[in-house]
Design a protein around this nucleic acid. Structure first.
Lengths: 137, 137
DNA sequence: AAAAAATGTACTAAAAAGGTATACTTTGAA
DNA sequence: TTCAAAGTATACCTTTTTAGTACATTTTTT
């Protein structure tokens, strides 16, 4: 029932960039040193974030990364999903093949967990990086 | 962000026993066959549930398991926690040693995830096995 | 006393998480 | 016009967790 360490790092990276401002470019080394994330791993995560359209990358000397969207439009959910894949409380719901009862649509447990999942998503979608920056003041 | 397969099995076991009624004793083999849970694994899970006070066990010939509490008093949360341990969205929050930033109390990400955790717990605590049985009708 | 049940501990295999290595491409500046 | 500092892509490796099994023991009913 936990997000991965990788997603936690990703949230920290996006928060870091949000604090810098949308058009500020920062290189991966600076990010990894500021947030204490292993440097190769930082690059890997940034590639996922860039692929998801959350960050922009600049190659070459003086390259780096910046936010690709405004902090108020980025939610916790998006960042977590960019790294960990879709939010999901129970694998049976996400991957019906996996359900050894094949009752996914009838099973009361699964229906209840699906509601829990919706509540969770709604909550994660309700928190933006602008919210997080402002709380800081 | 998922409960384990083991917790999913546990929920199914408790639902199964809830449907039988509080004082009905069922042996592990019957449970495992009805719910398609590997038989040794069923026993292992039932031991955790018994330890947590959710089920009662009877040894010897004609032994088995029954619910130890009324379905209206057992929540999704309790069953999940009996098997997977405490509900936790981010390991840093649960295990402060683990947080490589050591900012757990200041970090806005962590504060936000802690709120998410509370929402999640509240939701899981709000659903009892009586609710699940009744939805079935 | 034998059989049918649960218990306890330890083990193992497979999958996922977390992180690293290597070879490559792009770009700015000397 | 090259070279160093950045990012890219793919593949690999190690550790931890998950999922499940094995085996010897204990309890209880018939």
């Amino acid at each position: 029932m936990r997000i991965t360490q990788e997603a936690d790092y990703a949230l920290r990276i996006i928060l870091f960039l949000s604090k810098k401002g949308t058009d500020v470019k920062v290189d991966a080394k600076t990010i990894s040193e500021s947030e204490l994330i292993p440097s190769r791993f930082t690059l890997k995560i940034l590639r996922k974030l860039t692929k998801a359209g959350l960050t922009k990358s600049y190659r070459g000397v003086k390259g780096g990364y910046s936010l690709n969207r405004r902090p108020e439009s980025i939610t916790l959910r998006e960042v977590i999903e960019a790294v960990d894949g879709p939010i999901c409380v129970n694998r049976c719901l996400y991957d019906k093949e996996y359900c050894n009862l094949n009752r996914a649509n009838k099973c009361e447990i699964h229906k209840a967990l699906d509601n829990v999942r919706e509540v969770l998503i709604k909550e994660l979608d309700g928190i933006t990086f602008k919210d997080l920056i402002e709380k800081n003041n």
